[in-house]
Amino acid sequence: MSEPVVPVPTPETRHFWEGTAAGELRLQRCDDCSKAYFPPRPFCPACASRRVSVFKSSGRARLHSYVISHRNAPGFTAPYAIALVELEEGPRMMSNIVDCPQTPEALRLDMPLAATFRQVSDTIWLPQFKPTEI
């Protein structure tokens, strides 16, 4: 199994990847209209204000949708789920569901999840999610 694709942070996304390395899921929020958003950018996607702040997400999420890949990918052995999670604060992100059988029966839409972090290089940790109840 080869290594997964490792993200290369840019100035605008560094806070996110520094957060995952510190065990935190960091989102951004607009200081003017309060919109919480992801992926990172230095202005608000709802009102274009440049007055935005980074904040720590609760890491709580629900499983919004997914597929179960039956083909291997770098760092992944089939079958594995490629999942969209909806964070408690509103934004959605692509991730994987760990500590859970990769089956349609176990992967129930809207099941509650919590963020966890997987180290993939010296500096990069990927945000992943695990079920919080059986």
Partner: peptide
């Protein structure tokens, strides 16, 4: 885009059959 490289590609996606299909279970 670089947003895809940072925030989708690391999670085991491998092209349209693993991406375009994701909305359907919802």
């Amino acid at each position: 885009t670089d947003m895809h490289r940072q925030f989708e590609l690391p999670f085991g996606v491998w092209g349209p059959p693993s991406l375009f299909t994701i909305p359907v279970l919802r």
